[in-house]
C-alpha cells in the first residue's frame, strides 16, 4: 500500500515543481468555464426556458461540466504514449509494479487536485454570476449520480489508456488523441452543452457511442431528468462500455508490450 502513497507524494511534488504550468492550466479552465457561463446567460437573456432547460438547470449543467472535467475527463495516462515512444516505459516495466495501478494512482492524485481547485473556481464564478445551483431532487438520484461518476471515471481511464497504448503501433498517437480528444470526445460527452439540444437523429447516433456516459448522463441524472428505469439502463450500458474498454486496453497492452522494442541503446 505504501508504495502507492509514495507515488501520490511524487505526483504532488511534480506538480509543485511545475507550479506555473499548473496555475496556467487552471486559469485556462477558469476562463473557458466563465466564457461558457456568460455565453449561456446571453442566450437566455430575459427568457427563463430554452430547449427544455431552465436557466438555472443549464447553469448547473455548465458548473457540473467544470466539475466533472476535473474528475472524469482527466487522466495522466496521456503521458504513457510519450513514454512508449521515448522508451521511458522501460523503467516501469523493470519494476515489480502493475502499470495500470501506477497510472490510476497518479490519476487519483490528479483528480484530487482538480476537485480542490475546481471547487474554488466554482465558488468564485458563482459570486460573479448570481444564480442558485439546482440540487438532485432526491437521494436516489444523488446515489445514482455518484455511482455513474465512478463508472465514467473508470471508463475514461481505460479509454484514455487504450488510446495511449496505440502508441505501440502508430507513430502519431498525438494526432489521434487530438481528433478524438478535442473534437469528438468533449463534444459528444456533452462538455460544451447538453447533447439533447442537438437534432434528434444526431442525438441517437451519439447515444451509441461511449462518450455521453462520461459527462452528459451523470448531469442529466443530477438534474433529475432521467427516470429510474432510464437511470438503470444508463448504468448498465456505461458498465458494458467500461468492460469493453477495460478488455480492449488490457489485451492491447499485453500485445503491445510484446511488440515493444524498448528503443534506444
Amino acid at each position: 500500500m505504501s508504495k502507492y502513497l509514495q507515488i501520490i507524494r511524487i505526483t504532488f511534488q511534480e506538480y509543485f515543481e511545475y507550479r506555473l504550468n499548473f496555475v496556467m492550466w487552471r486559469f485556462r479552465n477558469l476562463i473557458s468555464f466563465l466564457t461558457l457561463i456568460i455565453f449561456w446567460l446571453a442566450i437566455y437573456g430575459e427568457k427563463d426556458k430554452i430547449l427544455d432547460y431552465q436557466r438555472s438547470q443549464l447553469l448547473t449543467y455548465v458548473i457540473g461540466v467544470a466539475f466533472l472535467r476535473g474528475i472524469v475527463l482527466a487522466s495522466r495516462s496521456v503521458d504513457l504514449a510519450g513514454q512508449i515512444r521515448s522508451g521511458e516505459l522501460t523503467k516501469l516495466l523493470l519494476q515489480p509494479l502493475k502499470i495500470f495501478n501506477f497510472w490510476f494512482i497518479r490519476d487519483l492524485t490528479d483528480k484530487a487536485l482538480n476537485i480542490f481547485f475546481a471547487t474554488i473556481e466554482i465558488i468564485i464564478v458563482s459570486k460573479i454570476v448570481n444564480f442558485s445551483l439546482v440540487l438532485p431532487k432526491n437521494s436516489t438520484d444523488f446515489v445514482i449520480f455518484v455511482v455513474l461518476v465512478i463508472l465514467s471515471t473508470l471508463l475514461y481511464f481505460y479509454l484514455s489508456f487504450f488510446i495511449s497504448v496505440l502508441a505501440f503501433w502508430t507513430e502519431d498517437v498525438w494526432a489521434t488523441r487530438w481528433l478524438l480528444g478535442i473534437v469528438l470526445l468533449e463534444l459528444f460527452a456533452g462538455a460544451y452543452f447538453p447533447i439533447d439540444i442537438l437534432p434528434s437523429w444526431l442525438v441517437r447516433i451519439i447515444y451509441w457511442t461511449p462518450f455521453p456516459y462520461l459527462v452528459f448522463f451523470p448531469l442529466k441524472i443530477w438534474l433529475g431528468q432521467a427516470s429510474i428505469n432510464m437511470s438503470i439502463k444508463i448504468i448498465l450500458i456505461s458498465f458494458c462500455w467500461l468492460i469493453f474498454f477495460f478488455v480492449l486496453a488490457s489485451v492491447l497492452w499485453k500485445k503491445g508490450v510484446k511488440n515493444y522494442g524498448a528503443f534506444g541503446g
Binding site: I7, Q13, E14, Y18, Q95, P96
Partner: peptide, 24 residues
C-alpha cells in the same frame, strides 16, 4: 542503462530511492 534515466527527473534522487524502497 548508461544512456537511460531511471530516476525521476524533476525530483531529488532521494524521492526515487524512497519509491524504490516501497516498490521493492
Amino acid at each position: 542503462m548508461g544512456q537511460k534515466n531511471q530516476l525521476w527527473w524533476d525530483l531529488p534522487a532521494i524521492e526515487s530511492f524512497i519509491l524504490n524502497r516501497e516498490i521493492y
